[in-house]
């Protein structure tokens, strides 16, 4: 589904990713771990198309209609319409845009792309309320301005609500677990698990092992200094929990 080869990325003048390779297939769950500044967030933002990152070499291909397509040629919105989703580490607050209107605009943009009629306001509200219920989100939350005055945990839940509405094929969860209390972590994880299927894939970027207790990864990768230095199964995460990252560097 996603194939990254020898990816080099610069932010400002600094090289952050230095030849990264990663392959993700439908039905898989991947976890990417690594010390601060190793390039984890950069990776997720580059896949989503953040304009501040410059790819200097390498390729990212993503299957659209069963054919690999060069992601780097696509605008961020085009990537999203084709099923790529990034749950932000720091969701952006936008005063003046009601949450539900934003969700409907996003949903209808995908509908349009798929040649389906847009959903009317009423029907969409019923649809989104159902999704909100799954994430134990109070429906008053939908009328509030996008992410404005939400707690860290509420913002993260809102990200997963967006994921539930857009139903992506590939979801990148950038530190969705950080800032969540135990209950929120459980609710968010259960939500993600319900959205998981044989046809989609999930990539979790995390510092902590605890989310992996809820969302079981098939693969765990360690990212250090811009490259994946070790890949394994969930036991790798347990080992990191025990020993830290030092033994993997050098």
């Amino acid at each position: 589904m996603l194939n990254i080869e020898n990816l080099h990325v610069r932010v400002d003048e600094k090289e952050v990713l230095k030849g990264l390779n990663l392959t993700i297939k439908a039905g898989e769950v991947h976890a990417i771990m690594g010390p601060n500044g190793s390039g984890k967030s950069t990776l997720s933002k580059v896949i989503a198309g953040h304009p501040e990152y410059t790819v200097t070499s390498g390729t990212i291909s993503y299957d659209v209609n069963f054919r690999p397509k060069n992601v780097l040629d696509m605008e961020p919105d085009e990537r999203a319409r084709n099923g790529l989703f990034l749950a932000f580490q720091y969701p952006v607050e936008i005063p003046g845009i009601p949450n539900v209107e934003f969700l409907r605009a996003a949903f209808n943009a995908v509908c349009k792309h798929q040649g389906v009629d847009p959903m009317e306001t009423k029907a969409f509200e019923t649809f989104v309320r159902e999704k909100a219920k799954m994430l134990e989100i109070d429906s008053s939350f939908l009328d509030r301005e996008l992410n404005v005055d939400l707690s860290g945990g509420e913002k993260k839940r809102n990200e997963i609500l967006q994921m539930a509405v857009l139903n992506p094929r590939l979801a990148l969860l950038d530190e969705t677990d950080s800032g969540l209390d135990v209950d929120s972590l459980r609710i968010v994880s259960e939500g993600v698990n319900k959205l998981k299927s044989e046809d989609n894939a999930i990539v979790m970027i995390t510092h902590y092992h605890r989310i992996l207790n809820y969302i079981k990864p098939d693969f765990v990768h360690v990212l250090a200094d811009g490259r994946i230095v070790r890949s394994g199964d969930v036991s790798l995460a347990l080992e990191i929990e025990d020993r830290g990252y030092d033994w993997l560097l050098n």
Partner: peptide, 23 residues
Amino acid sequence: QELFYLQSRAISREDAKRMLASA
């Protein structure tokens, strides 16, 4: 950042600009 956030949710650049100006 706001523009990217909206675009990352499938909303076209032009529509996103329109939404932000209305907001």
